[in-house]
Design a protein around this nucleic acid. Structure first.
Lengths: 337, 337
DNA sequence: ATCGCATATGTTCACGTGAACACGATGCAG
DNA sequence: CTGCATCGTGTTCACGTGAACATATGCGAT
């Protein structure tokens, strides 16, 4: 049935020892050229593929990279995963995906599953919440945090988005359009990114000469409904003429409120999203937003992941985000046909 | 360094044989209850996690599922992968993702990589092109084809979208709006789905009492640029007043032409897309399209994947697509701010 | 007491790979 | 032609797990 071709079966075929085969296939110098060629030719003919499990058992490292994302539907994460998968191909890494839904329990289980397969590296967007007892699963694992930083009880590399400047520009852009009451919707203080973006927003207000008003800063979980709920609340309260978003899902949620609102309700209201999915260029005449260098983030992630943990120094890199000005005053959706 | 907790290290700790530990952890009956409890407690305390590689080597099956998709940015594939990943979690399966970009060579390499890790099942959207010599990598693998069918030189299950009726409805919907010259953009005959959708389109024309015109049926690779190029061509030629799409990427490409065109160029032109990403509900006032039961497809895929190949009978299931009527005459993008 | 059987535990082995070591053959310096 | 390095190849072992087989203990029936 599952008569797999192994180094030993090749050795039997050729009447030699399995070590000669092993050496020939890994281009070890101490093999006669003709032996090497015979082995390599035969291996190709019978379709030999190395057994990753056997290598893993020897402690040679698994070449498995785990990816933990809140979800993979949001286009930022999807695009990140897409580029990462391609880069992993280039690095001969196996990419295992787990979705956390930003839930610490689910994240913990994902780490455990990755421990099972002895993942070499784990790239993850840390879920909000207290330090979980993941460290048991991180022994000898190369941990790479994405976008957010969180203490894991052991050294970890991180790949961050530096969006301070871009968010400031967004606020100044809105101020330049005459907005004086600008609301903010972001993730709460449990996330490092939530803290940083909120600070960037307030710094932006300050440098635009506007006062910061606690009531216009609305925080919550980094999800669609937080965006939806808070956008509706801010607009209904009527004490805001523009909204800046500080999160991918939050941005989509808030945007949905703008697009589905009556024309009158959001007439003249300004909106700046977060993240730049392809369709933002079209929605409502073009959504102004904060864009990040997704492909670069992913390539850097693959680069960091392609190292045995012991030889990977802890590494921290930031990639600058940019403000994309489009049609900041969105056109709501035309009445459906 | 990597002092992993193993069944043997636990045995040493407790001064018993590793087999007693193995039996206790797998709830084998022949273990004294107190021994079992002692082992399980200790295992939990020291954070034992089973070694997947060792199990794989014994031929116990790897619980690894490979997923081969053209890309993971298109929201259909992203959503499929998202639900599949969650379902795999439920089934305790490890999900490895590979992107084929619809290229047979890349697909072949992906199969080889999955062979390396002895994937138990592979779920894939077959790339267009001739039969590749993948069969060498499919020994003892549970093959599940998604959306498209292609001979792999060995039995394979398949999960398909039955879109004949929905495409027919789309054509009739357009005919009902007065369109007489309806163009079609789809994948060419190398894909089973390309053949089926084209046939469905022509059947739709027939049942709407319209003649089929070869020149209005444009085929190509299942990608964005095919949609873009052919939509532009059909609209410029001016012998078409509506377009039906037969592919996810094709639909996005064609849609981009509508949204970026001058108001005059597409005034009154009808459009029906393929696939139903969330933003189709908003773009251009709402895009009419063919929607599929993505979550159901993914759950069924996980179900089929969670079987040792030898015990998985070949299985063929179809899920009915539906036509979603929205604002069939799209509003182009308003001039940007 | 002896046998037989069930229960609980221990020992050995295989899986595929490659490091470590062992061995014979060749070459070359003394 | 001896001694010793080098080259090509072979043998053994470990990695973690669990099946198969082996052993020990207890207990009831004869």
């Amino acid at each position: 049935m599952s008569n797999r071709v192994t180094i030993k079966s090749i050795a039997r075929d050729l009447g030699i020892s399995h070590m000669t085969v092993s050496r020939a296939l890994s281009d070890h110098p101490n093999v006669r050229p003709d032996t090497r060629k015979a082995v390599q030719d035969h291996a190709r003919k019978v379709g030999y593929v190395k057994n990753a499990a056997a290598k893993a058992m020897r402690g040679d490292g698994t070449k498995i990279v785990g990816l933990l994302l809140p979800n993979i539907v949001n286009e930022f994460y999807a695009r990140f995963a897409n580029t990462l998968a391609q880069s992993c191909e280039d690095h001969s890494l196996h990419l295992i995906i787990h979705l956390t839904n930003d839930d610490p329990e689910t994240e913990l289980r994902a780490f455990e599953r990755l421990h099972e397969v002895q993942a070499m590296s784990v790239i993850h967007v840390p879920a909000p919440g207290a330090v979980r007892n993941v460290s048991a699963h991180l022994n000898g694992v190369n941990v790479i945090q994405l976008i957010r930083e969180q203490d894991m009880g052991q050294p970890a590399s991180s790949i961050l988005v530096e969006d301070h400047r871009a968010i400031g520009e967004a606020v100044q852009h809105l101020a330049g359009l005459g907005h004086r009451s600008i609301g903010y919707i972001g993730a709460d203080e449990r996330l490092s990114s939530g803290r940083a973006r909120r600070a960037a927003f307030e710094a932006g207000l300050a440098s635009a000469g506007l006062a910061s008003d606690e009531r216009l800063i609305t925080l919550g979980a980094p999800d669609f409904s937080t965006g939806q709920r808070n956008a509706a609340r801010l607009l209904e309260a009527g004490n805001v003429t523009a909204i800046v978003c500080g999160g991918f899902e939050i941005s989509n949620g808030a945007l949905s409120v703008f697009l589905e609102a009556d024309q009158g309700a959001v007439e003249g209201a300004g909106f700046v999203g977060y993240g730049d999915p392809s369709y933002y260029a079209w929605l409502g005449g073009g959504v102004s937003t904060i864009a990040m260098q997704v492909d670069e983030l992913a390539q850097e992630a693959a680069r960091l992941a392609d190292c045995r943990p012991e030889e990977q120094p802890v590494n921290k890199r930031s990639f600058e985000a940019s403000f994309v000005a489009r049609n900041t005053h969105l056109a709501p959706m035309r009445g459906g046909g």
